[in-house]
Design a protein around this nucleic acid. Structure first.
Lengths: 221, 221
DNA sequence: GCAACTCGGTCACAAATGCAACCGAGTTAA
DNA sequence: TTAACTCGGTTGCATTTGTGACCGAGTTGC
């Protein structure tokens, strides 16, 4: 009973609303389109729209939220004997290869426009930062497990709190990844193609993960 | 209630179910397709299917039922001074011109196959007869009004009962129309096109309505 | 003769949805 | 300042839908 009519229709509705909303935002701008218009275009009532998405911003950020916990999953599913950072490096390289939008190296016009929409709309950009914070926390937990730290579970807290070192490393990874993606996006925004940028992107990722692995000192900083 | 989301979606669902069902019946035969398969293909649950259509047969007959009361409406909407039978004749001629399926003069393969499906399936054919009876009653009422008879409303009856003459004429009209449509369909089934048959169909309709208007005596019967 | 199965159709219940009215904050206009 | 308006978001309620279990009649198999 994992795949009933109910589930299928709900997923379809969620996708339809989000896609319609993004298309309208891209065409007219985020705050020149009202939620009522989106609901009408998606053939859904306004309360239903808000049952799927808690706020107007989430209509856009759903795509980003879909990747929630991905880094933590990569760490947990890494091959035996492979270090967490190496597994993350592998995953990022694979993402570059596949031109995944999350790497910033996807030059489809729609994806580029989506990037512009998110970063040019303050309320959206700020929400992305929140997602990044949540992502960091989840990754820190997975890294704590990987490093053999038994996660502490304080009395009042609902979730275990990782130790300091995994949290620092996780935060650094998330930050570094943002920079890499930003750089790739900037290169594409200046008109170059993903194929042209690919080599530099790989090299930049190599540098970044090398820095993460061995610290700044080895680079004279 | 003008045109809300609810109404629109219900009509869409009703159409989707009926069309999916007819397509499957045409491909595999009426009683080689289960209602559960139809519901699955139409992406609705079985109870929902039966909320729209009271029986399996109605999945097919919906198209015919859609024309319920059409003859009565034609009579009521006829131009001032035009006799009911003449208005019905006009309407039938217009139907022939437009190649409406109800005239039997539509040679689209899908319509032909639909005809075959209905008349080759006993449980469907018998239901068509019931619809014809209901159609007759409705038309008789409209004709009674047109003829100036005040419809009688007997104590126990929920609806007024037309006088005898309008009922006879209405019954004759329905019968005659069935024969005309059957003849047209037979001609098309033998491989001729609607355009080729059109002239004969018009002439046949002329003869039939002439007979209705002036009786058999004038034709030596 | 009888059990197991199929198939059209129904039931009770919970989940999803539409609808209309409303709230509260921010804007505009008089 | 106040009144009217817009817009994101919410609420109560009726309608619609999915789900699973069930009924009863007709077949099939033994």
């Amino acid at each position: 009973m994992v795949e009933g009519l109910r589930t299928r229709k709900k997923e379809r509705t969620r996708r339809a609303i989000s896609e319609v909303a993004i298309a309208m935002f891209l065409e007219h701008g985020f705050d020149r389109v009202g939620v009522a218009e989106i609901a009408a275009a998606a053939e859904v009532s306004k309360p239903t729209l808000f049952r799927y998405f808690p706020s107007k911003e989430d209509l856009v950020l759903q795509r980003i939220a879909d990747h929630r916990g991905e880094a933590a999953a990569v760490v947990r599913a890494r091959p035996a004997g492979r270090a967490p950072l190496d597994a993350l490096h592998d995953a990022f390289m694979a993402g570059l290869d596949a031109r995944e939008p999350t790497t910033g190296l996807c030059d489809h016009p729609a994806v580029l426009a989506y990037h512009r929409l998110v970063f040019d709309t303050p309320s959206l950009a700020s929400r992305v930062a929140e997602y990044a914070a949540a992502e960091t926390e989840a990754l820190a937990e997975a890294m704590g497990e990987a490093a053999g730290f038994a996660p502490r579970a304080p009395a009042g807290a609902s979730r275990p709190v990782p130790h300091l070192t995994p949290r620092l490393v996780a935060a650094q990874y998330v930050t570094v990844r943002q920079i890499l993606a930003r750089d790739n996006y900037a290169a594409l925004a200046s008109g170059r193609t993903a194929g042209e940028v690919y080599g530099e992107a790989v090299a930049a990722a190599g540098t970044a993960f090398e820095l993460l692995r061995h610290g700044a000192r080895a680079h004279g900083l």
